[in-house]
């Protein structure tokens, strides 16, 4: 049951993704990439959990994963904000 639920969520999320992303204008494609990139930093949630699960080796892997994912999250959202505040009207 768990697996079916989780597949349902996955498939529905893909459809939602296609719906909302096709509406992003070409002007904002670079911020879309860097912003969605920051969102893929959600792996940080897994990284946090990973620090406890796998014994010593696992927690080292978890530490590196936390570093990588945080770079992704912090860097991604910050650089997207930096870009988006440049887009001005006349």
């Amino acid at each position: 049951m768990d697996m079916i639920n989780i597949f349902t969520v996955f498939i529905l999320a893909i459809f939602v993704g296609f719906e909302i992303i096709t509406k992003v204008p070409p002007t904002l494609h670079t911020p879309l990439m860097s912003g969605s990139n920051a969102i893929s930093g959600i792996a940080i949630v897994g990284a946090i959990i990973a620090t406890k699960v796998g014994g010593e080796l696992g927690s080292w892997l978890g530490l590196i994963a936390v570093i990588f994912a945080t770079i992704n999250v912090v860097g991604g959202f910050m650089v997207t904000d930096r870009m988006l505040k440049m887009f001005k009207r006349k």
């Binding site: 990139n37 893929s40 930093g41 792996a43 940080i44 897994g46 990284a47 959990i49 990973a50 699960v53 796998g54 014994g55 080796l57 696992g58 927690s59 892997l61 978890g62 590196i64 994963a65 936390v66 990588f68 994912a69 770079i71 992704n72």
Partner: peptide, 15 residues
């Protein structure tokens, strides 16, 4: 880095 983080989490889970 995003891809790397995901792979590392899965690797930790492997162990």
């Amino acid at each position: 880095f995003g891809g790397g983080a995901s792979a590392l989490v899965a690797a930790a889970e492997y162990f």
